[in-house]
């Protein structure tokens, strides 16, 4: 007899959005990333990407560093330890939800 269908547990709303989840996952694999690189990898627009990164920054999940490289302004994003923990908790919650369905 099949078990009752599971509902999504209380997932972190800050990273539940597809783009924010993608951004945090991208940043998990690198030390720092430029805005333009994140834009290219997610195929997002400047405004959309900026808004979502701001939400991650406000939640303390990413840190921002602005500097000049060859006299051009560059914005660098990095995942914070809080962001890493939030992503780990999020993955754990997803895996708990999936339970035996994971192969």
């Amino acid at each position: 007899m099949p078990e009752p269908a599971a509902a999504l547990p209380d997932l972190d709303p800050v990273i539940h959005g597809k783009l924010r989840l993608a951004l945090l996952s991208l940043l998990a694999g690198v030390e720092q990333a430029e805005f333009t690189w994140l834009k290219q990898k997610t195929s997002s627009t400047d405004g959309n990407l900026g808004a979502h990164l701001l939400k991650l920054e406000e939640a303390g999940y990413v840190s921002v560093e602005k500097k000049f490289v060859s006299r051009k302004p560059v914005t660098l994003y990095a995942m914070t330890s809080a962001g890493r923990e939030a992503l780990a908790n999020y993955v754990a919650a997803l895996k708990a939800l999936l339970g035996g369905a994971l192969v």
Binding site: A5, A6, L8, A22, S25, A28, G29, A33, L98, A101
Partner: peptide
């Protein structure tokens, strides 16, 4: 790797899609 065609609920399907997205993005970054 996550199998996406054997889930019993939309929530599980969504969760598997989220996990697949995380996996692919981390791989892409690295």
């Amino acid at each position: 790797m996550v199998e996406t065609n054997s889930f019993e609920s939309p929530a599980q399907r969504e969760a598997s899609e989220q996990l697949a997205l995380i996996e692919s993005m981390i791989r892409e970054g690295r």
